[in-house]
Every structure is written in C-alpha cells, then in structure tokens.
Nucleic acid binder design. Structure first.
Lengths: 129, 129
DNA sequence: TTGCCATCTCTACATTTGTAGATAATGCTT
DNA sequence: AAGCATTATCTACAAATGTAGAGATGGCAA
C-alpha cells in the first residue's frame, strides 16, 4: 500500500521534482541538472537521495557501479501530502477557508477563474451521484 | 514592516494557534491549554515560545514575575506563508493546479461548492475593475 | 518569617536537515 | 598494465527542531 501521508522537506522537493523528470536516473545526473539552481555538490545530492531511499521516498537499484533511482511516491501523492499538511496545521482542517485564502493570494486571470468554475461544476455533478 | 514570508514549523503552528486565541497570555496558560493535545511540559512550551520570540513570530513583555506573550504575525500572514510555501515547492508556483488538487482532495458539500462559486464570481468582478 | 507554589532561567540532549570533504573502487582507454 | 575519469562510500559537522530536567526566584498564605 502507498504511503499514507507523504511529507517532504524543501531539499527533498527539489530532488524529487528532478527525479520525476528523469527517472530512472543516477545521482550524478540529478546533480548536474540541479547544479545551476542549487550549487549542490555530488555528495550533497547523493546524501539527500540516500536518505530519501531510507524514508521510502525513492527506490534505488544498483547495477554494476551505478545506482539508479526512481521515485517511490507520485507527484500527486506528494502534492496531496503538502496540501494536507497545510490544511491540518494552518487551517485546522477547514477546506473552504483554505481555498478562500488561496484565491485571495493569487493573481488569477479571468480565464483561470472560469476554468475553476467549471471544475467546481464538475465536482458538483460527481458529488451528487 | 511585517515579515513578508512567514514560515512555521509544526510545533510553532500548535503554539501560535493557541496564542491567537488567548493573547496576551503567559506561557503556563498555553501549556495548560495544550496539555491534553500535546503532553508538552512547561519547559517545552516555554522554550518553543522563546525561540519564536527570537524569530519574530511572537513578542514578549515582562511584567514583574510574569512574561506576557503576543503574536507578532497574524493568522492571515501565517496561513498565506504556508500556502506560498506549498505553492512554490509542490506546484512550482502554478496556482490553478494547486486549487485543482485541493478541490480533488477534499470532501466538499454542495453548499460549500456553491459558496466557492460565488467567491470566484466576486473575484472576477474585482479583477476587471 | 517560613515555607510552599508558581514561574522563570539555564542547560542539555537526541533527531532531523542541510551541506560536503576525503578516500576508495570501478572501469574505460591507451 | 597504468592512468584517468566517474561513481561510490563513509564520515563529519553545523544549524534547526523537538523535548525536557534541575535549580533559582518571587510572592503569598499561615
């Protein structure tokens, strides 16, 4: 069964996003891809990734001299985890205020707002089945 | 000027939510209020609160033998900070996908959905001013 | 005035997170 | 076979986070 509640640190987010884009991939690859953004050395990336394996966020398979990594949680799961964390701590589990705050926070274009409306309509449909 | 990016750890969230409800208040008060929920000792609560003062999340004023605390960031600010953190890390800054994921995540009643719709309509109004 | 209770102060310590160097092993190239 | 480049291993360490005990202090009740 998949991890119930996925929680990632900021550095882990950085890593896993790159893994999702390149998996299966080796640590040096990730290091290169991130180098511009983070300046992390190979050691840093490697340590992070191995810790993530220990936590069940990634899987590693060793082939000869190369360790190939893959994500063990999906983007969806991770995103959901992040949202649930915020929901629980910042909003005491109340979804509507959270959505409200998010709407206020953002610069949404009218198109995006319209898109949201249809998402909500859709959601309404599904709900009352 | 207020802190523009507020970030709280989970323990800090627990503390500040109780402070918001009782401020100005002393550490022992917070400890009592949280006791059921967290089992934290006075020392723990106190340490946390003093660290939060150092970070500018709370303010403290000493009156004789009593230290009175108050929040230095509003609930709004803190909530926004949490959301911005999630937005940046989990959604690469893309608001719509975040909202979408949130909609999918939650058990929203039709009433809540309707409420959201009107929020969006309102937002649309404001936008095209 | 004595002692108790509430509150504070200081220090401590384990774990997690962020970061990385030094050294070893592997395997390709000549 | 030797050397070079790539990758891996192991160890380290500072800062942040979570948690708390021991002892000092101040004020009130008897």
């Amino acid at each position: 069964m998949p991890k119930q509640t996925v929680e990632l640190t900021e550095a882990e987010w950085t890593i896993i996003k790159t893994v999702w884009e390149h998996e299966p991939c080796a640590a040096p690859t990730i290091q290169e891809k991130l180098h511009r953004q983070t300046e992390w050395t190979y050691s840093t990336v490697r340590t992070l990734m191995d810790r993530m394996v220990a936590k069940g966020l990634l899987t590693a398979e060793k082939i000869r001299n190369l360790t190939l990594y893959q994500s063990a949680v999906t983007r969806q799961q991770a995103q959901r985890g992040e949202l649930l964390y915020a929901l629980k701590n910042a909003f005491n589990g109340a979804l509507t205020p959270m959505l409200q705050c998010l709407l206020e926070t953002g610069d949404l274009s009218s198109e995006e707002l319209t898109e949201l409306e249809s998402l909500i309509k859709q959601k309404k449909m599904t709900r009352k089945r």
